[in-house]
Amino acid sequence: MALTGAVRVTDAVETPAPARGSKKGDGRAASAFLLPGAIGFVAFTAFPIVASLVMSFFDWPVLGDPTFIGFGNFVELFTTDPVFTTALLNTAVFVLLYVPVNIVVSMGLAVWISPRIVGRRYYRVLFFVPAVTPMVGNAVVFGLLYTPRGLIDSVFQTLFGVSAPNFLGSSTWALPAVVLMSVWQGFGYNLLVFSAALDAVPPSLTEAAAIDGAGPVRQFFSVVLPLMSPSLFFATVLTLISSFQVFVQPYILTGGGPGNSTTTLVMYLYQSGFQNFRLGFASAIAWVLFVIIMGLTAIQFLGQKKWVHYDQ
């Protein structure tokens, strides 16, 4: 198992700094090498972040002059805006459904292909294919599957003699349908991470546990899973962050509808900024989302002490 950055940072601090003087001249070269990256960072990361923070305090139309309104956008978001609460709730439901299902499915499949079964390399590739195909294409295909008289509906009619629900046209089914498509799209990446972590578990430990009388289930939960916990932590953090930013799936599949039943925060951000022309309001949504993601990630990092084991 790879050591984490945190451990290495501690090491670096303990290492005495190289003596100054003899290597003084490298500073200029170092800055020259850093410059391209720094320019890119300032132009494409730092500047937009600061700009969006500034914009969030303005009524900033696409055409016309911005007006400073202080916390006006944020106040509107949390008090009078009718859609924001729904979008926040939809995003929360999406995250709560998507993250656990994604982790369980990818972990389950990783465990399934982990023993020396025939063709497991091909399974890995097969399961990874959805993750590397463009999401827009996947969403369009799923749209066709979900549509009345689409494949799923036809199968329902043949097998059960009744029509399948109108998945994307029904306020009840639309969000679960979006989650299902997202899981199919997203599990391959985590599967690869888990698969690699499983391979790194020393067989001697599971063998020792087996000699001590532990069955396969006990071995998995008491030996393998704790050893995989850094990968699990990594996967959970990244999946959580990306799932809060869900946009393409509802954008292509449902346009945020029916009603607002699949309008997520980023979807609403896009609509506010690029369709309703309220760039300041959209920036405010972005910052609320940023704070939420930041907060939850911080909690995860604090919580990891309890369950993530970095020792081999």
């Binding site: 749209g143 549509t147 994307l168 046209g169 292509i252 599949l253 449902t254 346009g255 509808g257 029916p258």
Partner: peptide, 9 residues
């Protein structure tokens, strides 16, 4: 007319 499949299409 068929039930509407999805918004946005």
């Amino acid at each position: 007319a068929s039930p509407l499949p999805a918004a946005g299409s």
